[in-house]
Computed example of a mutant assay.
Amino acid sequence: MNGCMKTGKPQISVLMAVYEPRMDWLKEQLLSLNAQTYPNLKLYIRDDCSPAVPFEEIQSCVQDCIRAFPYEIRRNEENLGSNGTFERLTQEAEGDCFAYCDQDDVWLPEKLEVLEKTITGSGALLVCSDMHIIDSNGDQTADSITKVRRHHKFMSGKGLAKDLLVSNFVTGCTMLVQAAMAKAAIPFCPYMVHDHYIALWCAERGEVISLPQQLVNYRLHAGNQTNLMAGVKDKASYGKVRIDLMLARMQWLKDYFPCSKELKQTINDALVWARARKQNWEHHGGTRLVWKYRRFSILPSVSEMVLKYVPDSLFMKTIQLARKNYI
């Protein structure tokens, strides 16, 4: 383990969760971390009990690739999932800012230097950026996440929590967050991906900034956890993945998320909307309330009123159009 030079710069800790990594992709990611131009880094890695990839192989890869700064690598005692693993990393890491890292992307060398300059100069609680999109072979397929996710709209400023309740514009591998804020957000909401919840936490408490620069080569492939309509195989699974999960999220936020009176009312309204979506999908009413609160997400609000009547075959054709970014 290498020593860390005294640079006078805030320490950025990179938090990486690993599970069943494809080793060539993991090596690319690690080498891109090692090539970062920012001078004060530490890497924390946790393997989430990968069943087929030996922990010793992951350790060896890290040892071979990371030479520019210190690192710690551990293995979970039991499988925690990505949210649980990132929460554990957030608890144990030290430093001034945290950068969350996947196992299959490639970071541009200046990524952390640009993000740190922005967060330090602005006083923002969290900054994020755009991304290049690459495929399984590493070839660029798009020059922005907005080209492959039609509804992804970057935002900057204060008072953005209401905009983050349902949809997220902060992709975890692009964000830098003040460490104290990330630690204060624990426990993470179990019904939100870690980056989404941290973004919501920060947005309720201060400024969030989105940069237009592409600072990551984001690898989109079949195994991505956040693929569009991931887990949807038929109408029943759509209800569980897209409707029940949203209902559970809003109930958890209502019960546990500390926030202003204004946001609490917005969460209450979103909970009414989420319950009505479930009633509508199960043909138990709710249509009027779904329409009334359609502002939370107009496309599912409107489309579910129709799609609940169509057969699974036609329903899945619609889902395929959504996955291809056509709707």
Rank of each mutant, 00 (worst) to 15 (best):
T266P: 07
T266D: 12
T266W: 11
T266Q: 15
T266N: 11
I267C: 01
I267G: 02
I267R: 00
I267W: 00
N268I: 01
N268Y: 08
N268K: 08
D269F: 00
D269P: 00
D269E: 02
A270L: 06
A270C: 13
A270K: 07
L271K: 12
L271E: 07
V272T: 12
V272P: 09
V272Q: 03
V272F: 02
W273I: 02
W273P: 01
W273Y: 13
W273L: 03
W273T: 01
A274N: 11
A274Y: 02
A274E: 06
A274T: 10
R275V: 08
A276Y: 05
A276D: 00
A276S: 12
A276V: 04
A276H: 03
A276L: 14
A276C: 05
R277K: 14
R277P: 12
R277A: 13
R277H: 13
K278Y: 04
Q279P: 13
Q279Y: 11
N280C: 13
N280T: 04
N280E: 10
N280S: 15
N280A: 15
N280P: 02
N280F: 00
W281S: 01
E282F: 02
E282Q: 14
E282S: 09
H283R: 04
H283G: 00
H283Y: 09
H283F: 10
H284P: 01
H284M: 13
G285C: 03
G285A: 08
G285F: 06
G285T: 12
G286T: 06
G286F: 03
G286A: 07
G286D: 08
T287Y: 01
T287R: 09
T287C: 06
T287H: 03
R288D: 15
R288T: 15
R288F: 11
R288K: 13
R288P: 09
L289R: 15
L289N: 09
V290I: 07
V290R: 07
V290Y: 04
V290P: 07
V290K: 10
W291Q: 13
W291G: 05
K292V: 09
K292L: 15
K292G: 08
K292S: 11
Y293H: 14
Y293G: 12
Y293M: 05
Y293L: 06
R294W: 02
R294K: 14
R295L: 07
R295S: 15
R295V: 09
R295Y: 15
F296K: 11
F296R: 06
F296D: 15
S297Q: 15
S297G: 14
S297P: 01
I298S: 05
I298W: 06
I298P: 04
I298Q: 07
I298L: 10
L299N: 03
L299Q: 13
L299E: 11
P300R: 03
P300F: 00
P300G: 04
P300Q: 02
S301F: 06
S301V: 02
S301G: 05
V302M: 08
V302F: 04
S303M: 08
S303R: 04
S303F: 06
S303A: 09
S303D: 01
E304A: 02
E304M: 11
E304T: 09
E304V: 01
E304D: 12
E304C: 02
M305A: 11
M305H: 05
M305W: 02
M305E: 08
M305G: 11
V306N: 03
V306S: 11
V306T: 12
V306Y: 09
